[in-house]
């Protein structure tokens, strides 16, 4: 039991890392990773939704009738997404402004619905939480990694939290000029593609 629990948790961190291994949930991956901070914030919001919706779906898995299960999952997920939106607005307002429409869009993130349908509806609550936490943390770290690459190349800074960069290239090279293309939308595709290519050099198992 403990071993399989650990397995469910760690698979999200490597073997089934959402954007890189499953290539799922790409909309927020491409849209919000302009800075590390935005990427991490988006990942944490998604993790919150993922863990609680997994927990609830798993607890109610014997109650929910099969025919309306998708509708029930959506209601559960949408509830938690709205809660996240309120909380972000109340406690992390600058982040809420930066993420904008992409917080409500977690509802249609295929990772969340995918985990509910494929895992939580068939497993015990504890396993579902482990799964949600693993996938969520994997997602958060991937978003942070893409944000790191894009922000470092595209703006020459690294912003982990609170809007102020912890590292600035201009303090190292005074006349550093960032590769602005990486911050633009097409740059997101190029960055993701190159990172996928590098990931594929390393076997998943």
């Amino acid at each position: 039991m403990a071993q399989s629990l650990a397995k469910e948790f760690t698979k999200g961190l490597w073997a089934e890392l959402p954007p890189f291994r499953l290539v799922l949930g790409l909309c927020p991956v491409l849209a919000v990773t302009k800075t590390v901070e935005n990427g991490l914030g988006m990942g944490i919001a998604t993790t919150f939704v993922l863990v609680f919706s997994n927990l609830l779906v798993s607890m109610l898995r014997n109650v929910i009738p099969t025919k309306v299960r998708i509708a029930c999952y959506i209601v559960i997920i949408a509830t938690f997404v709205t809660i996240v939106e309120f909380l972000a607005q109340a406690f992390a307002y600058p982040l809420f402004l930066a993420l904008g429409i992409f917080i409500p869009l977690i509802v249609v993130n295929c990772i969340v619905l995918g985990r509910a349908e494929a895992f939580a509806s068939k497993n015990t609550p504890v396993m579902a939480i482990a799964d949600g936490l693993g996938i969520g943390i994997g997602f958060t770290l991937s978003l942070g990694a893409i944000g790191l690459v894009r922000e470092f190349l595209g703006a020459g800074t690294i912003t982990i939290w609170g809007g102020t960069p912890v590292f600035d290239m201009t303090s190292v090279f005074a006349n550093f000029q960032p590769f602005g293309f990486m911050i633009e939308a097409p740059g997101a595709f190029v960055a993701l593609g190159l990172m996928l290519a590098v990931m594929n050099l390393i076997p998943s198992k």
Binding site: Q177, P178, F179, G180, F181, E184
Partner: peptide, 11 residues
């Protein structure tokens, strides 16, 4: 041209 377009956009 891919290189030119991306660089013209950045710098």
């Amino acid at each position: 041209l891919v290189g030119m377009a991306i660089l013209m956009m950045s710098w």
